[in-house]
Simulated scan of single mutants.
Amino acid sequence: MFEGYHQPQHHVAMRDGLPVALRPTLLEEAESDWRSHPRYAGKARFFMNIHRQLIDGSAQLAGALEQLRDAPESEVKDHLRG
Rank of each mutant, 00 (worst) to 15 (best):
L22I: 03
A71K: 10
G63C: 07
V12I: 15
Q67E: 15
M1W: 06
V20Y: 02
D70F: 03
V12H: 05
F47Y: 14
R39I: 00
S74C: 02
E31K: 06
S58T: 05
E31N: 02
A44H: 06
S58L: 13
A30C: 01
G42A: 10
A59Y: 06
L80Q: 03
W34Q: 01
Q7M: 10
A59R: 14
F2E: 08
G63Y: 04
D33Q: 15
Y5D: 11
H10L: 03
A21V: 12
L65P: 00
K43M: 06
A41L: 05
R39Y: 09
A21N: 01
E73T: 09
L27A: 04
A41H: 06
F2V: 12
G82I: 03
R69Y: 04
P19F: 02
Q67K: 15
W34C: 01
Q9Y: 09
V12Y: 10
D16L: 02
W34R: 05
R69F: 07
H11E: 15
Y5W: 13
Q60I: 06
A13E: 14
R15W: 07
H37G: 01
L61F: 10
G63R: 14
P8Y: 12
D33G: 01
E66A: 14
Q7K: 15
Q9M: 07
S58W: 06
Q67Y: 00
P19L: 06
F46P: 01
L26W: 04
R35M: 09
L27Q: 08
S74R: 11
G63Q: 15
V12S: 07
L80F: 04
F2T: 11
G17S: 12
H51C: 10
R81M: 10
Y40I: 02
G42F: 02
S32R: 13
R23L: 15
K77N: 04
R15D: 01
Q60H: 09
G82V: 03
H10D: 10
F46E: 14
H11D: 14
A62T: 13
M14Q: 12
L68D: 00
D16W: 03
A62M: 06
A64W: 05
K43G: 09
E29C: 05
D33Y: 06
K77I: 11
R35D: 07
A30F: 09
F46N: 08
H51Q: 14
R52P: 00
F47W: 14
P19D: 13
N49V: 03
H37W: 03
R45H: 05
L68K: 04
H51L: 11
N49F: 07
V20C: 01
R52S: 08
K77G: 00
K77T: 12
L27M: 15
A64M: 08
E3Q: 15
D70G: 07
Y40K: 01
M1P: 08
D78W: 02
E29M: 07
P8G: 09
G17M: 09
A41K: 12
Q67S: 13
M48I: 05
H79D: 12
R52Y: 00
S58I: 08
L61N: 09
A41Y: 05
I50H: 05
G42L: 05
Q53W: 05
L65G: 00
A41Q: 11
L26I: 11
L27N: 03
Y5P: 00
S36N: 15
H6N: 10
S58V: 03
V20L: 13
N49H: 12
E28Y: 03
V76I: 15
Q53F: 07
T25D: 02
A30P: 01
V76H: 08
I50C: 10
Q9L: 06
L65W: 00
